[in-house]
């Protein structure tokens, strides 16, 4: 599904990501962890095309996407959530989903109509996505008025609305209490049931260890370990990276 091959990114003299390679298979949930500043978010941004890779290759379904701009990567099936929640806060909940649904071009009506005509309301589809995300009763509310946990869910719902094959979650559990984390865990498993592939960047180990199939550990932009949650917990290098010393 997602193949990352020897990618690297330098910011000035800092090697934020250095010769990183890993794969994510179809239908798998992979966790990407590492101490602060280890290059996790940079990796997500490289996959989404927020900035280009300095070297290396990123491909999705055998299609090389390393040089595509962000919006074309979305079209090839990648969508994401953000570390700091980013919603259109002055739009209502359903409008936030609608804007994502609309980007899927509708061949049946012709381009004149699609771009210049009144955009059509896909109410059933919006409702379905919101119910799936546990926001069914918040349809008409303003996105900015939702609680923190709900805003996270809305972001996830918007990511689903772009009909992705691969979802990148950038620290979705940041700032959540343990009930909310448990809810989030269930939602990530639901994504898997839909057949989606998930790459999860996360600090909250309570979530990572209980949801992922496989973990990739980064430190100083390099991969230091890869394996099942149990293997990673017992890995000496990982313990050293997190706790320091011997």
């Amino acid at each position: 599904m997602l193949k990352i091959k020897n990618i690297g990114k330098n910011f000035g003299g800092v090697k934020a990501v250095d010769d990183l390679s890993f794969n994510v298979d179809k239908g798998e949930i992979v966790g990407l962890i590492g101490p602060n500043g280890s290059g996790k978010s940079t990796t997500i941004n490289l996959i989404c095309g927020v900035f280009p890779v300095d070297f290396g290759n990123i491909s999705v379904n055998e299609q090389n996407i390393s040089s595509l701009p962000t919006h074309e990567r979305v079209a090839s099936g990648i969508s994401r959530t953000f570390q700091n929640i980013r919603l259109f806060k002055d739009l209502s909940v359903w409008q936030n989903i609608w804007v994502a649904l609309q980007q899927d071009s509708d061949q049946s009506s012709g381009w004149m109509r699609e771009w210049f005509g009144n955009s059509k309301l896909q109410k059933e589809k919006i409702k379905e996505i919101l119910v799936f995300s546990g926001l069914g009763d918040r349809f008409d509310d303003l996105a900015g008025n939702l609680s923190f946990g709900e805003q996270r869910r809305l972001e996830l719902a918007r990511a689903i609305a772009s009909k992705p094959k691969l979802i990148l979650l950038d620290e979705p559990a940041a700032g959540m209490n343990s009930d909310e984390v448990a809810d989030l865990r269930q939602r990530i498993l639901d994504l898997k049931k839909l057949g989606l592939t998930v790459l999860l960047v996360e600090h909250v180990m309570e979530l990572v260890m209980n949801v992922v199939d496989r973990i990739v550990v980064l430190n100083f932009g390099k991969k230091i370990a890869e394996g099942s949650p149990e293997n990673i917990q017992n890995n000496k290098d990982v313990q050293k990276a997190y706790l320091g010393g011997a």
Binding site: V50, Q102, Q103, W115, S162
Partner: peptide
């Protein structure tokens, strides 16, 4: 229209606009 709606989204938050395609 989609043209103007999308333009407003770009004006509000270019990064999110990009990330929904």
């Amino acid at each position: 229209s989609k043209l103007f709606k999308n333009a407003r989204l770009v004006g509000k938050d270019q990064i999110v606009a990009q990330s929904i395609g």
